[in-house]
Simulated scan of single mutants.
Amino acid sequence: MAVQSDASEIADAVGPYDRARALNAFKVGDVTFYWITRISAISVLLILGGIILSLIVGAWPAMKQFGFEFLWTRRWAPSADPPVLGALGPIYGTLVTSFVAMLIAIPVGLGIAIFLTELCPQWLRRPIGIAIELLAGIPSIIYGMWGFFVLGPFLAYTFQPFMINLCAGIPVLQDIFAGPPSYLSLFNAALILAIMVLPFITAISVDVFKTVPPVLKEAAYGVGCTTWEVVRSVVIPYTRVGVIGGIMLALGRALGETMAVTFIIGNSFRISSSIFAPGTTISAAIASEFQESDGLHQSSLILLGLLLFVLTFFVLAAARLMLMRLETKAGK
C-alpha cells in the first residue's frame, strides 16, 4: 500500500509538469508555423517588388530617352543614328494574337468541358482527359516547331488562300484577311496560342462544372429542359466565377508566351490590318533581340518587358474586379 501511495504521489507530481511541457511544445510549434507561413507570404511580395524594381532600373535610360512616345512610336530601328525605338508594333501583336487565340480557345474549351461533364460516355472520359493533360505538358518549343513545319504550310497553301478568296470584296473582312499567304503570321501564332491555352480552359471548366449539385440539374431536367438549356441556365451561371478565372489564367499564358510565338510570328515590327501578315509580340521581340542588344537597345527591350508586366497586371486586376462584381451581384 505504501508503494502504491508513493507511485500515485509521483504521478500527481509529474503529471502537471508533463502537461505544461506539452503545452509549451504546442505553443512553440504553433508560433514557428505562423512565422514560417508569414515569411513565405512576405517573400512573394519581396520577390515581386524586386522584379518590378529591377525592370524599372534597367528600363530607366529608355524611359528618359523616349518618354511616353515610346508607347505609340511604330518604328523599331536600333541601328539608326540616333536609335528610333517604339513599342507600338509589339503591343499591337501581343493584343491581336491573344485576342484571336482566346476567340478560338474559349468556345472550343468550354465545348469540350461541357461534353466531358454532360454528354461524354463514361468509357471515353478518361482518354480525353489524359489527352488534355498531355497537351498542357508539351513544351512550348515543340508547339513552335510543329507550327513552323506542319501547321504553317497547311495554313499558307490551304486555309489562308481560301479565306482570302472568300472575303475578297467584303468590307472590313477583306482587310482583316488580306494576302499574301505566309508561313509566318499573326494568325499562325494566335492558332498555336489557342491550342496551348486550351488545356487550361478545359481542365478548370471541367473541375468547376463537376461542383454543380446534381439536384439542380435533375430539377431542370424534371421540368423538361434540354441539355443545352440546363447548361445555359444552370451550369454556366452556377460556375461562372470559376470559368472566368480559368479564362483569365489562359489569357495570362497567352500574353506571355515566348518560344512558340517566336518560331512562327515572323518577328516583324510592322503593323498591318491583316492577321495573315507577319508581326511580333513583346515576348517574341525580347527573345529574338536581347542576346545581341546593348545600351539603349537593351534598355528598350527591358522597357518592353516592363510594359508586358503592367499589361498583364491590368488584365488580371480587371478580371479580379469582374469576379468581385459577379460575387456581389450573386450575393444580392
Rank of each mutant, 00 (worst) to 15 (best):
I114M: 10
V223W: 10
F159E: 04
A131H: 01
S185F: 13
G86M: 07
D207N: 12
F148N: 03
F200N: 01
L155W: 12
I265A: 04
L151N: 02
M63G: 03
R21Q: 13
I164N: 05
C120S: 12
Q4S: 11
A178I: 08
L316M: 11
G109N: 05
T32F: 14
R232G: 10
S273A: 12
V215C: 01
E218G: 00
I52H: 02
L308F: 10
I128F: 08
G137Y: 08
L198E: 06
D294E: 14
V28Q: 06
A250Q: 04
G49F: 11
A194R: 02
I104H: 01
I130G: 00
I247T: 00
I42N: 02
D81V: 06
V96H: 02
T227Y: 10
L193M: 15
T37M: 13
A277G: 03
I114W: 02
F148M: 12
I247W: 00
K210W: 08
L53M: 10
P82A: 07
R125P: 05
G15P: 00
P90D: 06
A156C: 11
S140Q: 11
P213M: 08
L296F: 13
G246T: 01
L110F: 06
A219W: 05
K64T: 07
N267D: 14
V206Y: 01
I132Q: 03
V172E: 05
P278H: 05
Y143A: 05
L116S: 00
V261G: 01
P83T: 01
